[in-house]
Write a protein that binds this DNA or RNA. Sequence first.
DNA 1: AACATTCTTGACAATACCGTCAAACATGAC
DNA 2: GTCATGTTTGACGGTATTGTCAAGAATGTT
Lengths: 199, 199
Amino acid sequence: MAGVRQFDEETVLAEALALFWRQGVAATSMPDLAAATGVQRGSLYNAYGDKEAIFLRAYDRYAAGLLDLCRASLEGDDAGRILARFFETIIANMTAGAPPRGCLTTKTAADGSLASATIQARLRDLLDGMTAAVAAALSRPAVRRQLTVDPAQAALVVVTFTRGIAVMERVYGDRRQLMRAAEGLIAGLVARPRKGRGA
Amino acid sequence: MAGVRQFDEETVLAEALALFWRQGVAATSMPDLAAATGVQRGSLYNAYGDKEAIFLRAYDRYAAGLLDLCRASLEGDDAGRILARFFETIIANMTAGAPPRGCLTTKTAADGSLASATIQARLRDLLDGMTAAVAAALSRPAVRRQLTVDPAQAALVVVTFTRGIAVMERVYGDRRQLMRAAEGLIAGLVARPRKGRGA
DNA sequence: AACATTCTTGACAATACCGTCAAACATGAC
DNA sequence: GTCATGTTTGACGGTATTGTCAAGAATGTT
């Protein structure tokens, strides 16, 4: 096969992701992407077709990475600790960067990009995956016993709450507030939030 | 005073609000507003200056109305009922319209309009007001006793959760899921969610 | 080394939005 | 009825984005 792609797709998608994350999908134009990636607009059109296609590729990587982080944070048998670590992960993800980038999924969900059913489906996929991961963790017998709500519903509550945290981050930009909110939710969901201090 | 405004400001702001709500602030242009309100673009510039000014005026009305609805829903002494009615109000607000418009505050928060500190401040004002209203309701002694978390923190959790519901509405568009999520949260925050059925 | 294939480049036309402004207009004040 | 005042109108120049395309460039194949 001759006529070979001159740019490194990994790099381009990473730069594109960074831009989408920072600016939001709707606010990012093809010229923006061209400038950020160093690839000419015409080449991007040729390689991917349109902005949505680029976004979908970038988002898939993002989603996979985030899901891995979430799953890793959900190990253990102490419900309070599991959830605290999970929310820490989520909050770290959305407060990273300067200024903080916020949560890509949430920004995308609210910025009109959902006119595309394909994008909506991808966002749903990530949230479904996240819900499943949380539900699995909360369903472990040792964990389940500590909950005030059954695991499936608790998982829905937790994932919904992560979305709320993402919005609050945008509006208040106060990391501590997010932690306090998460802590409050955990207190409600776990039977004995504070038995001692350490283990 | 001669040279008098030819359009009805109430009507114009109502139409503008409807458009912002449906399309999102960032996705709404001055020509869009002109078309929707029937007022020429030049007149809008003359009367208000720019899109942001129009949005702020429309949003203030929206915020005031929504806050009133929220406060009204928070009366009573049964924590579970109060919260259920509050979430019903919130969910009704964001699932109204065909297709549902979602939550204006949340859409605005995530669509890049927060580049404007003024807009961010207004969103914060509404959420502050909502948090205060919920905190006040949850602080009533009879209510407070039923909670698993102290009122101030519970209010933060509740308001954060409303933002999460708004995002979930965008992604899933499933009213029942929102109700189930809210119900789950209430179960966690209220000590005895189900003692009987009625009072 | 020559070729075929695919990518890249720069430019094009089409469309849309913004902010402004001068001229025309309508209205309340006198 | 006349005037002063603020509004409305339509148009202008400037800028930006989109999607396409023909010509040039690069590379694997033979």
